[in-house]
Amino acid sequence: MATKAMLSQQEKSTAASTSAFSWGAILTVISGIFMLAALYMALVWAPDALNLTAPAERYAQRIFYFHVSSAWLGFLAFIVAAVVSILYLVTRKDIWDMWALASIEIGLAFFTMVIISGSLWAKPTWNVWWTWDPRLTISTICWLLYIGYIMLRGAIDNPDRRARFGAVYALLASFSVPLNWMAIRWWRTIHPAVVAPGNNADESMGSFGMSANIQTTLIFCVVAFTIFYITLMYHRIKLEQLQRRVDSLKQRLLYR
Protein backbone atom coordinates (compact mmCIF):
# COMPACT_ATOMS: atom_id res chain seq x y z
CA MET A 1 0.00 0.00 0.00
CA ALA A 2 2.85 2.29 0.86
CA THR A 3 4.36 1.53 -2.50
CA LYS A 4 1.13 2.37 -4.22
CA ALA A 5 1.02 5.71 -2.51
CA MET A 6 4.62 6.24 -3.36
CA LEU A 7 4.08 5.37 -6.99
CA SER A 8 1.14 7.68 -7.32
CA GLN A 9 3.18 10.39 -5.66
CA GLN A 10 5.95 9.69 -8.09
CA GLU A 11 3.62 10.01 -11.05
CA LYS A 12 2.30 13.24 -9.70
CA SER A 13 5.74 14.64 -9.15
CA THR A 14 7.01 13.65 -12.58
CA ALA A 15 3.95 15.20 -14.14
CA ALA A 16 4.52 18.31 -12.10
CA SER A 17 8.17 18.42 -12.98
CA THR A 18 7.56 18.13 -16.73
CA SER A 19 5.14 21.01 -16.73
CA ALA A 20 7.32 22.89 -14.25
CA PHE A 21 10.42 22.27 -16.27
CA SER A 22 9.23 24.53 -19.02
CA TRP A 23 8.48 27.25 -16.46
CA GLY A 24 11.96 26.98 -15.05
CA ALA A 25 13.44 27.03 -18.54
CA ILE A 26 11.43 30.10 -19.53
CA LEU A 27 12.48 31.94 -16.39
CA THR A 28 16.10 30.96 -16.88
CA VAL A 29 16.16 32.14 -20.49
CA ILE A 30 14.45 35.43 -19.66
CA SER A 31 16.76 36.21 -16.77
CA GLY A 32 19.79 35.23 -18.86
CA ILE A 33 18.78 37.67 -21.59
CA PHE A 34 18.10 40.42 -19.08
CA MET A 35 21.39 39.91 -17.27
CA LEU A 36 23.38 40.02 -20.51
CA ALA A 37 21.52 43.14 -21.60
CA ALA A 38 22.19 44.70 -18.19
CA LEU A 39 25.86 43.88 -18.56
CA TYR A 40 25.94 45.51 -22.00
CA MET A 41 24.17 48.61 -20.74
CA ALA A 42 26.39 48.95 -17.70
CA LEU A 43 29.67 48.45 -19.53
CA VAL A 44 29.07 49.95 -22.96
CA TRP A 45 25.80 51.81 -23.37
CA ALA A 46 25.85 53.97 -20.25
CA PRO A 47 27.80 57.21 -20.73
CA ASP A 48 30.78 58.12 -18.60
CA ALA A 49 30.02 60.17 -15.55
CA LEU A 50 30.79 63.77 -16.53
CA ASN A 51 32.55 65.08 -13.45
CA LEU A 52 34.91 62.17 -12.89
CA THR A 53 38.12 62.99 -14.69
CA ALA A 54 40.62 60.36 -13.61
CA PRO A 55 40.27 57.36 -15.95
CA ALA A 56 40.55 54.87 -13.08
CA GLU A 57 37.68 56.55 -11.31
CA ARG A 58 35.61 56.77 -14.49
CA TYR A 59 35.91 53.08 -15.17
CA ALA A 60 35.32 52.16 -11.55
CA GLN A 61 32.12 54.18 -11.60
CA ARG A 62 30.63 51.48 -13.82
CA ILE A 63 30.93 48.99 -10.96
CA PHE A 64 28.18 50.99 -9.36
CA TYR A 65 25.38 49.55 -11.56
CA PHE A 66 25.82 45.94 -10.56
CA HIS A 67 26.90 46.88 -7.06
CA VAL A 68 23.71 48.80 -6.30
CA SER A 69 21.57 46.14 -7.97
CA SER A 70 23.12 43.35 -5.90
CA ALA A 71 22.61 45.36 -2.74
CA TRP A 72 18.98 45.80 -3.72
CA LEU A 73 18.69 42.07 -4.34
CA GLY A 74 20.32 41.29 -1.01
CA PHE A 75 17.93 43.49 0.93
CA LEU A 76 14.98 42.17 -1.06
CA ALA A 77 16.06 38.64 -0.16
CA PHE A 78 16.26 39.65 3.48
CA ILE A 79 12.79 41.19 3.48
CA VAL A 80 11.32 38.15 1.73
CA ALA A 81 12.97 35.89 4.31
CA ALA A 82 11.50 37.89 7.20
CA VAL A 83 7.99 37.86 5.70
CA VAL A 84 7.98 34.15 4.93
CA SER A 85 9.35 33.46 8.41
CA ILE A 86 6.27 35.09 9.88
CA LEU A 87 4.14 33.08 7.48
CA TYR A 88 5.90 29.90 8.58
CA LEU A 89 5.37 30.58 12.26
CA VAL A 90 1.69 31.30 11.65
CA THR A 91 0.78 28.57 9.16
CA ARG A 92 3.53 25.96 9.84
CA LYS A 93 3.65 25.07 6.17
CA ASP A 94 6.98 23.60 5.10
CA ILE A 95 6.99 25.57 1.88
CA TRP A 96 7.57 28.86 3.73
CA ASP A 97 10.59 27.40 5.44
CA MET A 98 11.97 26.47 2.01
CA TRP A 99 11.33 30.01 0.81
CA ALA A 100 13.22 31.46 3.78
CA LEU A 101 16.21 29.18 3.33
CA ALA A 102 16.34 29.77 -0.44
CA SER A 103 16.05 33.51 -0.04
CA ILE A 104 18.77 33.73 2.57
CA GLU A 105 21.18 31.56 0.64
CA ILE A 106 20.76 33.71 -2.46
CA GLY A 107 20.97 36.90 -0.42
CA LEU A 108 24.23 35.68 1.10
CA ALA A 109 25.77 35.16 -2.33
CA PHE A 110 24.75 38.64 -3.44
CA PHE A 111 25.93 40.36 -0.29
CA THR A 112 29.30 38.73 -0.87
CA MET A 113 29.35 40.44 -4.27
CA VAL A 114 28.26 43.75 -2.75
CA ILE A 115 31.09 43.73 -0.22
CA ILE A 116 33.79 42.68 -2.67
CA SER A 117 32.70 45.05 -5.42
CA GLY A 118 32.27 47.87 -2.93
CA SER A 119 35.83 47.31 -1.83
CA LEU A 120 37.02 47.25 -5.45
CA TRP A 121 35.23 50.53 -6.06
CA ALA A 122 36.57 52.17 -2.93
CA LYS A 123 40.18 51.52 -3.89
CA PRO A 124 40.38 53.70 -7.05
CA THR A 125 37.78 56.22 -5.85
CA TRP A 126 38.74 56.75 -2.22
CA ASN A 127 42.16 55.12 -2.35
CA VAL A 128 41.41 52.70 0.49
CA TRP A 129 40.10 49.14 0.32
CA TRP A 130 37.77 49.54 3.22
CA THR A 131 36.04 52.46 4.88
CA TRP A 132 33.50 52.37 7.65
CA ASP A 133 31.00 53.85 5.28
CA PRO A 134 27.42 53.17 6.47
CA ARG A 135 26.37 51.26 3.38
CA LEU A 136 29.41 49.04 3.30
CA THR A 137 29.16 48.37 7.01
CA ILE A 138 25.47 47.53 6.99
CA SER A 139 26.01 45.13 4.07
CA THR A 140 28.69 43.36 6.04
CA ILE A 141 26.47 43.12 9.10
CA CYS A 142 23.70 41.64 6.96
CA TRP A 143 26.19 39.17 5.60
CA LEU A 144 27.16 38.15 9.13
CA LEU A 145 23.50 37.80 10.12
CA TYR A 146 22.91 35.51 7.14
CA ILE A 147 25.95 33.43 8.03
CA GLY A 148 24.51 33.01 11.52
CA TYR A 149 21.28 31.74 10.02
CA ILE A 150 23.02 29.18 7.81
CA MET A 151 25.19 27.99 10.70
CA LEU A 152 22.22 27.73 13.03
CA ARG A 153 20.35 25.56 10.55
CA GLY A 154 23.41 23.43 9.99
CA ALA A 155 23.66 22.63 13.69
CA ILE A 156 20.11 21.30 14.16
CA ASP A 157 19.07 17.79 13.15
CA ASN A 158 15.37 17.82 13.83
CA PRO A 159 13.75 19.29 10.68
CA ASP A 160 10.77 20.77 12.50
CA ARG A 161 12.98 22.47 15.06
CA ARG A 162 15.35 23.64 12.34
CA ALA A 163 12.49 25.40 10.58
CA ARG A 164 11.14 26.96 13.77
CA PHE A 165 14.47 28.22 15.08
CA GLY A 166 15.39 29.47 11.63
CA ALA A 167 12.19 31.48 11.39
CA VAL A 168 12.64 32.98 14.87
CA TYR A 169 16.23 33.93 14.11
CA ALA A 170 15.44 35.40 10.69
CA LEU A 171 12.70 37.52 12.24
CA LEU A 172 14.87 38.88 15.07
CA ALA A 173 17.72 39.52 12.65
CA SER A 174 15.41 41.56 10.45
CA PHE A 175 14.43 43.72 13.44
CA SER A 176 18.06 44.46 14.04
CA VAL A 177 18.75 45.74 10.52
CA PRO A 178 16.94 49.12 10.70
CA LEU A 179 18.41 49.79 14.15
CA ASN A 180 21.85 48.94 12.80
CA TRP A 181 21.26 51.29 9.92
CA MET A 182 20.37 54.16 12.23
CA ALA A 183 23.23 53.49 14.62
CA ILE A 184 25.83 53.31 11.88
CA ARG A 185 24.63 56.50 10.19
CA TRP A 186 24.75 58.42 13.46
CA TRP A 187 28.11 56.92 14.23
CA ARG A 188 29.52 58.38 11.05
CA THR A 189 27.84 61.76 11.15
CA ILE A 190 28.73 62.47 14.75
CA HIS A 191 32.23 61.12 14.41
CA PRO A 192 33.51 62.61 11.15
CA ALA A 193 36.89 62.92 9.52
CA VAL A 194 38.66 59.83 10.79
CA VAL A 195 38.48 58.59 7.25
CA ALA A 196 37.63 61.56 5.10
CA PRO A 197 35.88 59.55 2.36
CA GLY A 198 33.39 58.34 4.91
CA ASN A 199 31.88 61.79 4.78
CA ASN A 200 31.60 61.90 1.03
CA ALA A 201 29.93 58.53 1.14
CA ASP A 202 26.64 60.07 2.10
CA GLU A 203 26.65 62.16 -1.02
CA SER A 204 28.34 59.57 -3.16
CA MET A 205 25.11 58.91 -5.01
CA GLY A 206 24.96 62.50 -6.14
CA SER A 207 28.67 63.04 -6.41
CA PHE A 208 28.66 62.08 -10.03
CA GLY A 209 25.97 63.57 -12.22
CA MET A 210 23.10 61.13 -12.73
CA SER A 211 22.30 61.83 -16.36
CA ALA A 212 19.19 60.28 -17.85
CA ASN A 213 21.06 57.38 -19.44
CA ILE A 214 22.85 56.55 -16.24
CA GLN A 215 19.52 56.44 -14.47
CA THR A 216 17.93 54.25 -17.14
CA THR A 217 20.83 51.84 -16.93
CA LEU A 218 20.55 51.62 -13.17
CA ILE A 219 16.81 51.00 -13.27
CA PHE A 220 17.27 48.35 -15.95
CA CYS A 221 19.94 46.62 -13.89
CA VAL A 222 17.70 46.58 -10.82
CA VAL A 223 14.88 45.05 -12.87
CA ALA A 224 17.23 42.46 -14.37
CA PHE A 225 18.52 41.50 -10.92
CA THR A 226 14.98 41.16 -9.61
CA ILE A 227 14.16 38.73 -12.42
CA PHE A 228 17.42 36.93 -11.69
CA TYR A 229 16.36 36.66 -8.05
CA ILE A 230 12.97 35.19 -8.98
CA THR A 231 14.64 32.62 -11.22
CA LEU A 232 17.18 31.65 -8.59
CA MET A 233 14.44 31.38 -5.98
CA TYR A 234 12.42 29.13 -8.27
CA HIS A 235 15.30 26.72 -8.80
CA ARG A 236 16.47 26.82 -5.20
CA ILE A 237 12.99 26.02 -3.88
CA LYS A 238 12.69 23.17 -6.39
CA LEU A 239 15.98 21.87 -5.10
CA GLU A 240 14.79 22.05 -1.50
CA GLN A 241 11.63 20.15 -2.41
CA LEU A 242 13.73 17.43 -4.00
CA GLN A 243 15.94 17.35 -0.92
CA ARG A 244 12.97 16.82 1.35
CA ARG A 245 11.56 14.13 -0.89
CA VAL A 246 14.86 12.26 -0.73
CA ASP A 247 14.87 12.61 3.04
CA SER A 248 11.35 11.26 3.40
CA LEU A 249 12.05 8.40 0.98
CA LYS A 250 15.11 7.43 2.99
CA GLN A 251 13.08 7.55 6.20
CA ARG A 252 10.42 5.34 4.70
CA LEU A 253 12.94 2.77 3.48
CA LEU A 254 14.71 2.70 6.83
CA TYR A 255 11.65 2.29 9.02
CA ARG A 256 9.45 0.06 7.01
Binding site: G148, L152, A155, R161, A173, S176, M182
Partner: peptide
Protein backbone atom coordinates in the same frame (compact mmCIF):
# COMPACT_ATOMS: atom_id res chain seq x y z
CA UNK B 1 19.15 32.64 21.53
CA UNK B 2 20.59 30.76 24.48
CA UNK B 3 17.43 28.67 24.66
CA UNK B 4 17.85 27.97 20.95
CA UNK B 5 21.57 27.26 21.14
CA UNK B 6 21.26 24.49 23.75
CA UNK B 7 19.22 22.47 21.28
CA UNK B 8 21.92 22.60 18.63
CA UNK B 9 24.99 20.47 18.18
CA UNK B 10 27.56 23.26 18.50
CA UNK B 11 25.87 25.06 21.35
CA UNK B 12 28.66 27.14 22.86
CA UNK B 13 30.12 28.12 19.51
CA UNK B 14 26.84 29.13 17.97
CA UNK B 15 25.58 31.61 20.56
CA UNK B 16 28.12 34.40 19.94
CA UNK B 17 27.80 33.96 16.19
CA UNK B 18 24.06 34.48 16.40
CA UNK B 19 24.04 37.11 19.12
CA UNK B 20 26.80 39.58 18.26
CA UNK B 21 25.54 40.76 14.84
CA UNK B 22 22.04 41.27 16.24
CA UNK B 23 23.14 43.39 19.21
CA UNK B 24 25.57 45.62 17.32
CA UNK B 25 23.24 48.67 17.48
CA UNK B 26 22.86 48.34 21.26
CA UNK B 27 26.61 47.97 21.64
CA UNK B 28 27.29 51.08 19.53
Amino acid sequence: FSAMAVHTRARDVLLPIMLFPVIIPAML
